[in-house]
Amino acid sequence: MFKIEILTKKGFKNSHGKHVLSDITGIGIRNVIKVEYSPLYIIDGDINFVEAKMIASELLSDKIIETYTVNNHSEHDSKSTATFNCALFVVEVWYKTGVTDTVSESVMKAVKDLGIIKEMKVKMGHKYYLYGKISQTVLNNIATKLLANTLIQEYKIK
């Protein structure tokens, strides 16, 4: 099983993160100062690390503005909170089992187009890096009021 995370390269805008930040401010929460967003993919099947890397580089990430990690392993700079002198929280959001995940279906088709014809399951998720002094209650609020609908999604706070 491979977990692939897509990251915005340094120097490029993380537009969706900015958008989420404005939504957070919009519901009256002021102590989050920055949000970064990363799409996540879990690929579960008979593939090897080289193939997983190929899927990440050729399909799931954009060569110009994005980079990726496979199972948290990156050949590029790892994320750093150095520029932000404050705590970093991570929220991951995934669909519950059985909920239609349309992106995963597209990914499976596209992996085949890459020439990797193997049985596999794909899940797509969302990862939010939140910077700021945020209490657990507020974090839960952000997760349930903005990032996840617990009826169909589950979230993890790290």
Partner: peptide, 11 residues
Amino acid sequence: DVTAVQIGNPI
């Protein structure tokens, strides 16, 4: 009831 929720796939 949660099973009443459907997700669409426009494509």
